[in-house]
């Protein structure tokens, strides 16, 4: 157990401890519900100190994977380590280190936001003296201070979502598992969520986020894991994105001139069927290829208006998966 922290290590350590802190490590995970194979061989590594996006179509097993990681489900096969601890055999130790926010959750309608957080701080055995301050901080973090003493029943969906996030953070967990945290949030709250998750990751925590809001994920995620039909599918993001071949969207003032130049220079292109502005889509080798393309087009006198990646890298990878949607 030398590689695993002591059971009652104060969460959110600093300095060198963070650098070596284990994140989430999943190998060959399988889980079936009756005849439905929800997870069919998942391999996943989520680094500590990074935000990892979990992307996949509906029914691809994202929620099931998070349930296994949260220690609620026993996997049929495979190895799982959350913060270096096995959530099956060392359930309690794993739960102490994990903050989980489910995609669909209820609130105790008669309790106030403050009471919900206080109850969960008690349930996580936070030292009683530290609870009032901790609850106050969390309420401020998720901007619910003015609703602290109102019953949860009157909170809006987005406010409940933020309360749920505060609840997942109440015991200062090392690993955060967030299932669709952005759903129901207004744009401002989404930005704040992004900033908050970034900050939590920078503090050395492991953050695993599933979401359908891919542009959001792309802005905050360091890594991405793609799930399809219960399997992890190779996906790339971050460092690779700059060099990888991907689709770009090119638009010019004069579509005819653009098309003529593209055909003349032998570039394979296709029309962007989704847009009415006459833009074309073409595959380009990394950022360097895109820069060369702009230079050549401008040199050739094509009135280029914009060249931008078509959708995000995540979105493109996601759409590739979406074709296999069940």
């Amino acid at each position: 157990m030398a590689d695993s922290p002591a059971p009652d290590l104060p969460p959110g350590g600093t300095g060198t401890a963070v650098a070596t802190a284990p994140g989430i490590d999943v190998r060959g995970l399988r889980r079936a519900f009756g005849t439905v194979q929800a997870l069919d061989g998942v391999d996943l590594v989520a680094r500590a100190g990074a935000v990892t996006a979990l992307v996949g179509p509906n029914g691809s097993g994202k929620t099931t994977l998070l349930l296994v990681l949260a220690g609620l489900l026993v996997p049929d096969a495979g190895e799982v380590r959350v913060a270096g601890v096995d959530p099956v055999t060392q359930s309690r130790a794993a739960r102490a280190r994990t903050g989980w926010m489910p995609d669909a959750f209820g609130t105790w309608d008669s309790l106030t936001a403050r009471e919900v957080l206080t109850t969960f701080a008690d349930a996580y055995r936070v030292a009683p003296a530290a609870i009032p301050g901790r609850v106050e901080d969390l309420l401020a973090t998720v901007h619910l201070s003015e609703y602290a003493d109102r019953p949860a029943a009157v909170l809006s969906r987005g406010q409940k979502q933020r309360l749920g996030l505060a609840r997942a953070l109440v015991h200062d967990p090392q690993v955060l598992l967030l299932d669709e945290p952005a759903s129901g949030l207004d744009p401002r709250s989404r930005v704040e969520l992004r900033v908050l998750l970034r900050r939590l990751a920078d503090e050395g925590r492991t953050v695993l986020v599933s979401s359908h809001v891919l542009s959001e994920l792309e802005e905050m995620a360091d890594d991405a894991v793609f799930l399809s039909r219960g399997r992890t599918v190779a996906g790339h993001l971050g460092d690779d994105a700059a060099a990888a071949r991907r689709t770009w969207r090119l638009r010019a003032l004069d579509r005819a001139a653009l098309v003529a130049w593209l055909d003349a220079s032998g570039v394979v292109w296709r029309a962007d069927a989704d847009a009415a502005d006459g833009a074309v889509l073409l595959d380009v080798e990394g950022d360097a290829g895109a820069a060369a393309l702009v230079r050549d087009a401008v040199t050739a006198g094509v009135p280029v208006v914009s060249l931008a990646p078509a959708g995000g890298a995540l979105e493109q990878a996601y759409l590739a998966l979406d074709e296999e949607r069940r």
Binding site: L72, T98, P102, F105, G106, T107, W108, R167, H171
Partner: peptide, 13 residues
Amino acid sequence: AAGTLATLQVTLL
């Protein structure tokens, strides 16, 4: 059904 059980189960209770 109300979605409050699992969040309680994952605590140290």
